[in-house]
Simulated scan of single mutants.
Amino acid sequence: MSSDAHTARPSRLLTELRLLLMAVQYFTRVPMPGWVGHSTEQLSGTARYLTTVGIFIGVVGAAVLWATSLILPAPLPVILSTAATLLLTGAFHEDGLADTFDGLGGGATRERALEIMKDSRVGTYGVAALVLTLLIKVAALSALPVTLAIVVLIAGHAFSRTCAVALLFAGRYVGNPELSRARAVAQPMGRGEFLFAAIVGVAPLYWCGMHAIAGVISALLVLYRLARWFVRRLGGFTGDTLGAAQQLTEITFYVAVLASWNST
Results as ranks from 00 to 15, higher is better:
214 A>V: 11
18 R>T: 15
133 T>Y: 11
230 F>H: 06
254 Y>C: 02
101 F>Y: 15
262 N>V: 05
32 M>K: 02
154 I>V: 14
264 T>F: 09
11 S>R: 15
54 G>R: 01
76 L>A: 14
13 L>H: 10
65 L>A: 05
60 V>M: 09
109 T>C: 13
54 G>A: 00
70 L>S: 14
209 G>A: 06
175 G>S: 06
87 L>Y: 15
131 V>W: 13
238 T>I: 04
162 T>I: 00
29 R>I: 13
250 E>S: 03
72 L>E: 11
136 I>V: 15
182 A>R: 01
177 P>A: 03
168 L>T: 04
135 L>W: 14
255 V>Q: 00
169 F>G: 04
28 T>D: 13
225 R>Q: 12
207 W>C: 15
150 I>K: 07
121 R>N: 11
104 L>D: 08
41 E>S: 12
258 L>K: 02
1 M>P: 06
232 R>D: 14
255 V>R: 00
49 Y>M: 04
54 G>V: 03
131 V>Y: 11
90 G>M: 08
158 A>R: 00
135 L>C: 08
150 I>R: 10
72 L>H: 10
40 T>K: 10
215 G>C: 03
122 V>G: 13
139 A>N: 06
105 G>A: 00
12 R>F: 08
48 R>F: 09
56 F>E: 00
152 V>D: 12
178 E>A: 15
177 P>F: 03
232 R>H: 08
121 R>E: 13
189 M>L: 11
104 L>H: 08
53 V>A: 02
77 P>E: 14
167 L>T: 09
249 T>N: 05
92 F>E: 04
49 Y>K: 02
7 T>D: 12
157 H>C: 04
259 A>Q: 15
6 H>D: 15
251 I>K: 03
148 L>Y: 03
74 A>D: 13
187 Q>R: 11
166 A>S: 07
88 L>E: 11
46 T>N: 15
47 A>R: 14
189 M>A: 06
255 V>C: 09
122 V>F: 09
57 I>V: 12
230 F>Q: 05
138 V>Q: 04
200 V>C: 07
24 V>S: 00
77 P>C: 02
234 L>P: 04
141 L>S: 08
4 D>C: 06
203 A>C: 11
229 W>N: 08
116 I>Y: 05
198 A>S: 05
168 L>N: 05
108 A>S: 10
161 R>N: 07
222 V>E: 07
161 R>M: 10
111 E>T: 00
243 G>I: 02
72 L>M: 11
146 V>N: 07
215 G>W: 00
10 P>N: 07
70 L>I: 11
38 H>Q: 07
135 L>P: 13
194 F>G: 04
158 A>M: 04
237 F>Y: 13
258 L>V: 07
8 A>T: 14
41 E>N: 14
30 V>A: 06
126 G>D: 07
48 R>E: 10
234 L>S: 02
77 P>A: 02
56 F>C: 03
201 G>W: 01
141 L>M: 06
173 Y>T: 01
219 A>I: 12
202 V>H: 09
82 T>L: 08
136 I>M: 10
165 V>D: 03
121 R>Q: 13
63 A>T: 09
99 D>C: 04
89 T>G: 11
227 A>W: 09
84 A>E: 12
207 W>M: 15
106 G>E: 13
137 K>H: 07
157 H>W: 10
8 A>G: 08
8 A>R: 15
95 D>W: 01
28 T>L: 08
36 V>H: 05
194 F>I: 06
40 T>S: 13
190 G>L: 06
130 L>V: 08
115 E>Y: 01
72 L>W: 11
